[in-house]
Design a protein around this nucleic acid. Structure first.
Lengths: 243, 243
DNA sequence: GAGTGGTCTAGACCACGTG
DNA sequence: ACGTGGTCTAGACCACTCC
């Protein structure tokens, strides 16, 4: 037997997780210099390729900023309502920062109006779960969300748990598929009576509507969610880094 | 002297441009298989590292989709109002798909309310340009936009041209800086009288408000823009690919 | 000039999808 | 079984920033 235990996935993810945890633990403050690439190579006993792949991930998450000649610095802000979105990991992270309660509402068939609204196929059938997302349990509602699950996953729906894990991640675990592409459409519209009541805002108040579709790695739409956020309480934030 | 002319930047960008052009020219239809990595290595006479970096860019743009074991396929949709946003190149591409007319409105100082609204510093001073973005000249307005330019760039403002090039790109060319980070915040709010009149919608109708800040590579905010899109006429669309 | 990150090579082994 | 893309090594040279 070997003295080392290499259980987890790629090494660059382990390096990235290490750095992320160190930043979260406050070992590197905002604006602080991170170790150089060669230092990280030594510390983790990996090649520069691996270290650079790890740093690439952190940069995509907006956690660090890099400049040739200068080095790598921590570049993050802690505002809770900001939702940086660079990759799927970040998308899932957002879910972990808030609380989701839902109830099953049965099977639905999309009308042509809904289909156009959600960019989905008219007449398609889905298992509907409705819920509310809050920053803290019992706190101010951040969004009212309708989650539509592919009926093929019916056997796993009953086991879904509310909380800080995305339904998508839970279904993936239970049904054994892996994440593929995520698409999302964002628009503004006026609150209807249902959203107004659930969010505690006026009818016709501005809403931010986010429709996300999640595909597995074979391209099948596993579920799509329709989230309505009160305009005065939610800002969707993201960034893009060059190259 | 050598027979080859290596004028442009990194080789992976040349490879990426070649592939992008080939896809645009229809040599690879939507869903078609692209050459394998090793084939591209041979064709361009570069290492696999370089080819993979090129393919990584195209994947970030949403142009291709890759799966281990299967291969690389073209994966694009041509809908005009969708705005995939994976990197700065895509952001600039969006501008090229629409038409922007503006006029100079003079120097402004941000009130504390505006500062909070835009996530900028109160009391900061900017050169204000106001304009309207349309899909086609004289067509339906897509957005009304206020562009705030850093006063340090005053000498170059007079030379700015309306049209299909972003003001940011024009300023970068004129003032000689390079693109750094782009950040954007998206929220929903009710139209005021100015937006209503400019966009031809009702007062208090829902608006999608996008605030974008552009930094050069030293972190200075070169300009920020505040765009208001009519909720019933504009959907912001993006996607995220795994890993 | 010393040190940083950016680009690049020529190999290697592996996990996965498809025959 | 084979070919695909995913991960990884151990080097190298370069552009850039800072001292």
């Amino acid at each position: 037997m070997n003295s080392t235990t290499p259980p987890a996935g790629p090494r660059y993810l382990q390096v990235a997780d290490d750095l992320r945890a160190a930043i979260a633990a406050g070992h590197y403050a905002e604006g602080a210099q991170l170790p150089t690439e060669s230092a990280l190579c030594d510390r983790h006993g990996v090649s520069r390729f691996t270290v650079r792949e790890a740093l690439r991930r952190l940069q995509a998450e907006g956690l660090i900023r890099r400049r040739r000649g200068s080095g790598t610095v921590v570049d993050t802000v802690g505002s809770v309502l900001r939702q940086p979105l660079s990759d799927v990991a970040e998308l899932l992270q957002y879910a972990a920062d808030s609380e989701f309660d839902f109830e099953r509402r049965g099977m639905v068939t999309l009308s042509s109006a809904q289909a156009a609204d959600f960019a989905m196929a008219a007449g398609s059938r889905w298992i509907l779960l409705s819920g509310i997302r809050r920053m803290t349990p019992g706190g101010v509602p951040l969004a009212v969300t309708d989650v539509h699950v592919n009926p093929a996953l019916e056997p796993h729906v009953a086991a879904l748990q509310p909380g800080r894990q995305t339904l998508f991640a839970q279904l993936g675990l239970a049904a054994g598929f892996r994440i593929g592409r995520v698409e999302q459409d964002i628009r503004a519209l006026a609150a209807g009576s249902r959203e107004a009541a659930a969010l505690g805002i006026a009818r016709r108040a501005p809403l931010l509507r986010i429709v996300r579709s999640y595909r597995d790695d074979s391209g099948r739409i596993v579920l799509f969610s329709v989230s309505s956020h009160p305009g005065d309480r939610f800002t969707y934030s993201m960034h893009i880094d060059p190259a």
